[in-house]
């Protein structure tokens, strides 16, 4: 199948529909932060990562740590679509006994490579995984996604410093720079300042792109692999929290953990079809 713009557009709309639907079934969830990472996850899982839905623990596979663990439902939608588990399971999201809890859990969900939910920790775990892959020389690439609010955690910068010290060129990270956290716009709560300059000064190979442009994401990943000069990569994604569904985008800072009615689900599904 040709992985062109039309393919990615169609696929990420499908993933957004699944995401809104499973959160909608429950009536509340992290809609904003899920929808903002769908495009990068779509590119990674359908055009980049070496993973096998039939063998989720395959040795030497590429791995992804969704450090902003509250975006679990977006990842689950992709994993279900790829066949890691039946799509019907999506409707169990966040219900007692589910394998799909609001925050990523590697013990419960096939295809989830690391447990996250306490912000900042996943990113250090990704550094550890990247070191492990270096020791084993298995040529895997480790991907990590962090939030802009999450970037306020000191642990992010501890991990950043050490990853560059260890020259982890097998680590490709993304910042979901949607400019919002729970209590307000990131710039008003605790400004990240010149984020690209920060990552550069920490010794990372930094790119900044439109986080909803699939081809730009694909190109940036290829560039991160080819041009890193022995450095870990940070790809800053300019994104919109709630991307793809007007009323969710418009809710702005209120779309973090947002209630959604069945009627609204229908409106969202129409817009995404």
């Amino acid at each position: 199948m040709i992985k062109d713009r039309a393919f990615f557009e169609a696929k990420s709309s499908e993933i957004r529909r699944l995401t809104v639907q499973c959160i909608g079934d429950l009536g509340v969830g992290h809609l904003g932060g899920c929808l903002s990472v769908v495009d990068v996850l779509t590119v990674l899982y359908y055009a980049v990562m070496n993973v096998d839905p039939k063998n989720p623990h395959m040795e030497g596979r590429d791995r992804l740590v969704l450090s902003k663990g509250h975006a679990g439902p977006a990842l689950y939608s992709i994993l279900a679509d790829k066949g890691f588990f039946p799509k019907e399971e999506l409707s169990t999201l966040n219900r007692a006994g589910t394998n799909l809890p609001s925050h990523c859990d590697m013990l419960r969900t096939p295809g989830v490579d690391m447990t996250t939910g306490a912000l900042g920790q996943g990113f250090s775990c990704a550094v550890g995984i990247a070191i492990g892959s270096k020791i084993k020389k298995d040529n895997a690439t480790i991907y990590a996604v962090i939030g802009d609010g999450e970037s306020q955690e000191g642990q992010i910068w501890e991990a950043a410093m050490y990853a560059s010290h260890r020259k982890l060129d097998n680590l490709i990270a993304f910042t979901d720079y949607n400019r919002l956290q729970i209590d307000g716009p990131t710039a008003e709560i605790n400004s990240l300042g010149d984020l690209a300059a920060k990552w550069t000064s920490f010794g990372w190979f930094v790119q900044r792109i439109d986080g909803h442009d699939h081809l730009a994401i694909l190109e940036a990943v290829q560039k991160a692999k080819a041009d890193n000069q022995g450095r870990p990569s940070m790809i800053i994604l300019d994104t919109v929290k709630g991307k793809g569904v007007s009323f969710i985008e418009e809710a702005g800072v209120n779309n973090h953990n947002m209630p959604i009615t069945q009627e609204q689900v229908q409106i969202a599904l129409e817009e995404l079809s």
């Binding site: 969830g29 663990g69 809890p101 925050h103 447990t115 939910g117």
Partner: peptide
């Protein structure tokens, strides 16, 4: 949100 009152935020919370 002590203990199980974290409800839908789950085990990490």
């Amino acid at each position: 949100d002590p203990g199980i009152s974290a409800e839908l935020n789950g085990g990490t919370h």
